[in-house]
Design a protein around this nucleic acid. Structure first.
Lengths: 147, 147
DNA sequence: CAAGCACTTTACGTTAACGTAAACCTCGTC
DNA sequence: GACGAGGTTTACGTTAACGTAAAGTGCTTG
């Protein structure tokens, strides 16, 4: 996986009313350190739905947040399909019927379970890493002594 | 991602001296809820190196642990290449030269950074999920009231 | 000994998530 | 008006991580 330095951009440090700000595809791409291709692909997969100005895509705050969430999901190993599942249901919520909403709650519960599982995995993985680290240092030290 | 119910098998509840126990590919596959194909693939990718008894693969404790670690890594979104990187260096450690060992320490540091990043991602993702959950419940409640 | 089960190798197929290339607009500017 | 920087669509290419199918081996059980 490419969990690269891709930092998430700072939150609102400017003075502009958030609602107005828009972004081009290139801006967003630089912000999140992905390629425009990736962003277009996410749109094609139903994860983004920017408006248009003529031919060009215009991204608003909502789109930026979605992209942020999508990338976060990706870093956690979720597939785009899984991410879309939640994101779309979230959007369909306001006028959602009870069945859909309950389905959504189920999905959320699954996600939560996943996250807990992952936290445990991280905990264990850290122990392993610390262990390997310690051994490596020990060997290094021994090398230093006998040289 | 298929973060399915794949439980990790219980630790040593039997009385056999661990060293002796061996496993067939099918046993391991059932234990970890993967297919034999997957296990053979991991071997082909240099993550496992079972001994043979004639034609058949014989897995020992060491192999089982490796498989466990590999799958854990996968659940955390690591690629097989990344996993191999650490696992192989770990094995090469005893007779490793200083350069290799320092390289290993570097890699471990990267992994640690990754894990921390992921923990933060999980934290944020949980907040999002709780938020969506809350909204969904609110809408549901309103539906109930006005029906 | 036939049948079945678990294993083997070989090899081609599949899916997700993009990369990459070509060919085309549409600005501002030199 | 040429041109460079950004954007667009279309379409084929690529990689990882297996799935799936075919064809063979070896044991043991009715």
């Amino acid at each position: 996986m490419s969990r690269s330095p891709s930092q998430e951009p700072d939150e609102n440090t400017d003075a502009l009313p958030r609602q107005q700000r828009t972004y081009s595809i290139g801006e967003l791409a630089r912000m999140f350190e992905v390629t425009p291709r990736t962003i277009r692909f996410y749109e094609q997969e139903g994860l983004l739905a920017p408006s248009r100005q003529g031919q060009k895509r215009i991204y608003r705050e909502k789109d930026r947040v979605r992209l942020k969430l999508t990338l976060r999901g990706k870093r956690l190993g979720f597939s785009l399909a899984e991410i879309r599942e939640v994101v779309m249901m979230y959007d369909a919520m306001p006028d959602g019927n009870a069945r859909q909403l309950k389905r959504l709650l189920e999905i959320l519960e699954e996600k939560r379970a996943n996250l807990e599982r992952q936290q445990e995995d991280i905990r264990l993985m850290r122990l392993e890493i610390d262990d390997v680290d310690q051994r490596a240092r020990d060997v290094l030290r021994q090398l230093g002594e006998t040289s």
